[in-house]
Measured scan of single mutants.
Amino acid sequence: IEKFKLLAEKVEEIVAKNARAEIDYSDAPDEFRDPLMDTLMTDPVRLPSGTVMDRSIILRHLLNSPTDPFNRQMLTESMLEPVPELKEQIQAWMREKQSSDH
């Protein structure tokens, strides 16, 4: 029984630690959010139409349809242009958020 109590305490400790580690990014500025999924972008790319999306989301879309989801023009992965300035701004915002939450 004592071992179970210790195990339960350890589990509670881990759960509390994980809860502290989770950071809420739901208040991200609109320009940091993917327009299709409304999630925080981690690897922004510009489509030929000028729309900026997260790379993982547009690549997932391209698996089903080789088109720009906003104007239905033909689109391939090679046409995606990285946006390193925005990526750095997002990373800086995330770092600031992490340091203010801890």
Rank of each mutant, 00 (worst) to 15 (best):
I1V: 06
I1F: 02
E2H: 02
E2K: 10
E2Q: 07
K3I: 02
F4W: 06
F4V: 07
L7S: 09
K10V: 14
K10A: 08
V11W: 05
V11K: 06
E12K: 11
E12V: 06
E13D: 12
I14P: 07
V15K: 06
K17E: 13
K17W: 07
N18R: 15
A19G: 10
A19T: 12
R20Q: 14
A21G: 07
E22A: 05
I23T: 13
D24K: 01
S26P: 05
S26I: 15
S26A: 11
P29L: 05
P29E: 01
P29S: 04
D30V: 08
E31K: 07
E31G: 09
F32S: 00
R33W: 02
R33G: 00
R33T: 05
P35R: 00
P35Y: 03
L36V: 15
D38I: 12
D38V: 15
D38A: 05
T42N: 15
P44A: 00
L47H: 00
L47P: 00
S49P: 01
V52A: 04
V52D: 00
L59R: 09
L59M: 15
R60W: 00
R60Q: 04
L63V: 11
N64T: 04
S65A: 04
P66F: 03
T67R: 01
F70V: 00
R72S: 00
Q73N: 13
Q73A: 15
E77Q: 05
E77L: 02
M79W: 07
L80R: 00
L80V: 06
P82H: 03
V83Q: 03
P84R: 07
K87Q: 14
K87R: 11
E88K: 09
Q91L: 10
Q91E: 14
A92I: 01
A92G: 11
A92H: 13
W93T: 03
M94A: 14
M94L: 13
M94N: 06
K97M: 15
K97L: 03
K97S: 11
K97I: 13
Q98M: 04
Q98E: 14
S99R: 11
S99N: 10
S99G: 10
S100P: 15
S100H: 04
D101E: 09
H102L: 10
